[in-house]
Computed example of a mutant assay.
Amino acid sequence: MIITDTHTHLYSEEFNQDRNEMMQRALDGGVSRFFIPAIDSSCTASMYDLEKKYPENVFLMMGLHPTYVKDNYLNELKHVEEELAKRKFYAIGEIGIDLYWDKTHLKEQQIAFRRQIQLAKKYKLPIVIHCREAFDEIFEILEEEKGTDLFGIFHCFTGTHEQALQAISYNMKLGIGGVVTFKNGKIDQFLNQIDLSHIVLETDSPYLAPIPFRGKRNESSYLINVVEKLAHIYGLSTEEIATITTENSKIIFGI
C-alpha cells in the first residue's frame, strides 16, 4: 500500500529532535511519497537538505505562503522566481490568501497570489492553495485565471459542499487531512457526494493532527487515520483509498 502525503512541512523545527525516526514511522506505515510546500526563503535550504537525504521520497514545491507576505514580499517573490529558474519543482505552493490572522496585507496577498499563478502557468506546474477565511477572495482570482493551464490542489479544504464543487470546477483536487476526523469538521457530512477522483490526502504536519492525536504534533504516519476515515465514508477498503488518492496525486504532480 502506497500512501501519498501531498502536504507536509517536514523541515519544521518541531521535527528537529526526531526527524529520522518520524520519517521511518511514516515509511513503515506505507506513507512513501511526501510533497513539501515552501513558506518563504528561510526554508529553502532545509527543503533541499530533505530532498538530498530522501531523494526517492521527497518532492519539493516553491512559493510564498500568504501569511508570510509582508512589506518585503517583492523580494520574496524574486527568490521564488530565481529558484524556479534554477531547477525542477513539482508545484507552486503553498500560495493563496489568509485573512484569519491579519487583513493588513490583503492587497499584497492578492498580488502575490496572481503572480505565482502566472509562474505556475509559465512552468506548466500545479498550484497548491492555502485558503483561510478567504474563499470569496480566492475564487475571484481563480475565476479570472481559470483555464486548462490552471490546476492544482485546494490544500486543507474545510469549506462547504458548494465551495468544494466550485474549487473542483477550477481543476482543483481537494486536500483532505485530519479535519475530516474531527467531530466539528463538517466536511465528512458531504464528502461522500464528492467523487474520490477529486480527493488527495495530506497531513499539513506538524499541524492539524487527526483524531485520536488532535492537539498534538502531527506527522505523516498519522495519515493512516485519515485513510481509515475515508474508507468508512466511501465504503471502500483502505488499500483502495490509498491507491486512488495516490493516482490522483500523480495526475496533479506528474510523478
Rank of each mutant, 00 (worst) to 15 (best):
A38K: 06
M23F: 07
Y170P: 01
V227D: 05
I252W: 09
T6F: 02
R132S: 06
N72I: 07
I153C: 00
I3G: 02
D136R: 09
E51M: 12
K70T: 14
L10H: 02
V31K: 03
G159A: 04
F253E: 08
Y123G: 07
I111K: 15
E219P: 06
K122S: 11
E81Y: 10
E94R: 04
L208Y: 05
G235F: 13
Q109R: 07
P55H: 00
V200Y: 01
A209F: 04
F135C: 08
L60M: 06
T67Y: 09
R132V: 03
S41R: 14
E21M: 15
T181G: 09
Q17R: 15
G185W: 10
Q17E: 15
V200K: 04
Y73W: 05
L64P: 00
A26Q: 02
C156R: 00
T238Y: 13
K250V: 07
Y170S: 13
K216L: 11
F182Q: 14
F135L: 08
E82S: 08
A26M: 07
R214D: 03
A38Q: 10
L150R: 00
A167L: 07
I36E: 00
G152M: 00
K186M: 11
E51R: 15
I95S: 05
N184P: 09
E219H: 10
L125Y: 06
I241K: 02
F190T: 07
E81K: 07
I36A: 02
N192W: 14
Q193N: 15
T4E: 06
I39H: 11
H9Q: 04
F182T: 11
D5T: 04
I244A: 08
I244E: 03
P212G: 10
F59Q: 01
L174V: 12
I3L: 08
S12A: 10
E240V: 10
G178Y: 06
F253V: 10
I92C: 09
I194D: 02
K70F: 12
F15W: 03
H198A: 14
I233H: 06
H105R: 13
R33C: 15
P55T: 05
F35N: 02
E162I: 13
S46R: 12
G147M: 01
V180W: 06
E83H: 03
R217K: 10
Y100A: 11
P206D: 07
S237D: 12
K121C: 05
F182K: 07
I233L: 10
K229S: 03
P66Y: 01
K86G: 06
F182I: 13
K86I: 10
E144M: 13
D28C: 12
E137K: 03
K86D: 05
F34R: 00
H198Y: 12
I141M: 01
K103L: 13
D136C: 02
N72F: 04
L223P: 03
F135R: 01
H79K: 01
I233D: 06
N218I: 05
L191F: 10
S221R: 09
E202L: 12
T243G: 15
F213K: 14
L191A: 04
